[in-house]
Design a binder for these strands. Structure first.
Lengths: 119, 119
DNA sequence: ACGTCCGGTTCACAGGTGGTTCACCGACCG
DNA sequence: CGGTCGGTGAACCACCTGTGAACCGGACGT
């Protein structure tokens, strides 16, 4: 599926320009992100996943689509890579900005990136 | 918000285009809905039911038809699945938009989706 | 070449969530 | 009244996700 990349809504990130969502700034050229005024070091996979999520902030992205975008190929049943990396991202983002939630789970579907104060 | 919310035919929902009815926006590709500016997380079944109802907003849809559309197969006498899910949907929608009623019961027939200010 | 470090993947277990069914109750109707 | 229908809360169980740890292979320094 995939209708990807409607130019309409969100800031780009594939071209090297920083992508901002709330107080998160993703810097493609540097492979890192700023959360508030804190620098967050990310591995290649983590960065790629964060970018994929943030480019469509506020929208749910299906696991299948996330996988093909970040890892390439199709998601094998039972593959937990996505979960593990979402977890790593959450750890780092929330550590840099306590009291906030960034990645929301939509069970059976996928994840949605949307910085919100934790409830 | 511009929208042709004509009920009779079709705001599609299987093609991936968002379906709008009043201040409710259903996003097929994401398995979620927006009510006003709030994201409403829905399970797969809930989403499927909401979509079935909203695609013919303003019209009563028979229980039998709802069941075959959402669950597949024919409705067994005594099956309460629909009632339970209508209830879940009402909870979530009304929580996201207090003072509004979305799903109307037509006893002996079925349900009708039509966002209205509560009486 | 060897040992270490580190990121990425896989594994295993625990806790959550969702789907179905059941139980109970009030409303409605002949 | 007895029967049907829908609203609602809860039980039950399968499946999904969260999470810490093990595992593996490549990069790097000595």
């Amino acid at each position: 599926m995939t209708t990807a990349t409607r130019a309409t809504d969100l800031p780009e990130a594939s071209d090297g320009l920083p992508l901002r969502v709330a107080h998160v700034e993703i810097r493609p050229r540097e492979g890192m992100a700023m959360v508030g005024d804190r620098a967050v070091a990310l591995s290649v996979r983590e960065f790629s996943l964060l970018t994929a999520l943030a480019r469509r902030a506020g929208h749910v992205i299906a696991r299948e689509e996330l996988f093909s975008t970040v890892w390439g190929g199709s998601l094998r049943r039972g593959d937990r890579s996505i979960d593990v990396y979402v977890h790593k991202l959450r750890q780092k983002l929330e550590a840099a900005s306590p009291g906030w939630t960034f990645i929301h789970t939509h069970v059976g579907f996928g994840y949605r990136f949307a910085p919100e104060p934790a409830v």
